[in-house]
């Protein structure tokens, strides 16, 4: 009997939910806003689907409907990836500890 590959993916999915559960509970509440922006950025990994869809087929048909939806998704995801990671970086750079030497 073969196990359907879907079951493997489903196992990964369920285990990742548990990982997410424990990892996110350990995030300090003061970083919840960066948490949201970074999860936003990483969920844009959906761009891999967009790339596959956009680059499918022969070059003369590269602007087929299906490809165009892929290209549109690439722009959207790219905004999110760059915007999400950079704004997270900008926020995290602001979190500073008390300076020992008072200026």
């Amino acid at each position: 009997m073969e196990i359907d590959p879907f079951i493997f993916r489903f196992s990964i999915f369920i285990l990742s939910i548990f990982i997410g559960y424990y990892v996110v509970w350990s995030v300090t509440p003061s970083l919840h806003t960066p948490l949201m922006s970074v999860t936003n950025a990483i969920s844009s990994v959906i761009i891999v689907g967009a790339i596959i869809a956009a680059l499918a087929g022969e070059n003369q048909n590269i602007l087929d409907t299906a490809n165009i939806f892929g290209f549109l998704a690439i722009i959207l995801a790219a905004v999110n990836i760059f915007g999400g990671f950079l704004v997270t970086q900008r926020m995290l750079a602001m979190y500073k500890k008390k300076k020992k030497d008072k200026k």
Binding site: I12, V24, V45
Partner: peptide
């Protein structure tokens, strides 16, 4: 995508 989706979803 599956791993990320699960992480973001539970987060």
């Amino acid at each position: 995508l599956i791993i990320t989706g699960a992480l973001v979803g539970s987060s």
